[in-house]
Design a protein around this nucleic acid. Structure first.
Ligand SMILES: [Zn+2]
Length: 128
DNA sequence: CCTGCCGGGAT
DNA sequence: ATCCCGGCAGG
């Protein structure tokens, strides 16, 4: 609760309009260290297909405020579950569909009768 | 190859 | 004020 600012969700420290003499962007951009929050989630968790679910920042490619560091308590209660999933397969072409592993029901479980006594016998007979 | 962030641009 | 992309850099 209290983590959204309907009035002005976008409140960057430096307003693009207030780009006062700062103008240090270039240097900062070339000097600053990327990966401020090592491995964002909005984009990977939801995916470009669900961009609406990202936080406004991620939506506009800004600094993810959802995982903003420095934060302190009240941070998204992550589930420290041992998700071995991780990057099983090297990189992911954008939020893979994560499809359901497999269907519990035998949707297309074909089991042809490879053991047919009649046929086997016939084959044997023919062979012999 | 991929992601994230900033600035700048568009509405 | 709100929304988005281009481009840069690191792993
Ligand atoms: Zn985010």
């Amino acid at each position: 609760m209290k983590i959204e600012k309907p009035s002005a969700p976008y409140q960057p420290a430096v307003n693009p309009y207030a780009k006062n003499g700062g103008g240090y962007g270039l240097l900062a951009k070339l000097q600053r260290k990327r990966d401020t929050n090592k491995g964002r989630r909005c984009r990977k968790v939801y995916g470009v297909e669900q961009r609406d679910k990202w936080c406004n920042m991620c939506k506009w490619k800004k600094a993810c405020d959802r995982f903003a560091d420095g934060a302190n308590d009240s941070e998204i209660p992550d589930s420290p579950s041992p998700q071995s999933a991780k990057r099983a397969n090297k990189y992911r072409p954008t939020v893979l569909p994560k499809k359901a592993a497999h269907l519990p029901d035998a949707l297309e479980l074909e089991l042809p009768p490879p053991c047919d006594p009649t046929q086997a016998l016939e084959a044997l007979r023919v062979s012999v």
